[in-house]
């Protein structure tokens, strides 16, 4: 039984290696959405035409994405963190008080 599992494992990862070989080129991503987020600066007028700095006012585009464009993601992630920590507390609070 274990041998069958191992053969399936090897076949699956050979397939995965082949798909990693055939995936699109490294270093050349399709980037319309991210170019829109990074933005465009007009150096003649000295203003941002569009982009993260114009819309959120933060120089760090990653922070703009984390807290503004995908703020719901961060809220859910904070909920996951809270739940996991509450689980650890539930497991160990009895131990601590003994």
């Amino acid at each position: 039984m274990k041998k069958i599992f191992f053969i399936a494992f090897v076949v699956f990862f050979i397939f995965m290696f082949y798909s990693a070989y055939e995936i699109r080129d490294f270093g050349n991503p399709p980037s319309q959405m991210d170019d829109r987020i990074i933005g465009k600066y007009n150096s003649t007028t000295g203003e941002w035409e569009y982009g993260a700095v114009n819309e959120t006012g933060a120089n760090n585009a990653v922070t703009s994405v984390v807290f503004d464009y995908r703020g719901y993601d961060t809220l859910g992630e904070a909920t996951v963190l809270f739940t996991a920590i509450a689980g650890v507390m539930m497991l160990f609070r009895r131990v601590k008080n003994e």
Binding site: P29, S31, M33, D34, D35, I37, I38, G39, K40, Y41, A52, A61, V62, S64, V65, V66, R70, D73
Partner: peptide, 12 residues
Amino acid sequence: IPGKMVLPVPQA
């Protein structure tokens, strides 16, 4: 600039 920066969304 837009062609010279890595993409921010995967990093987030």
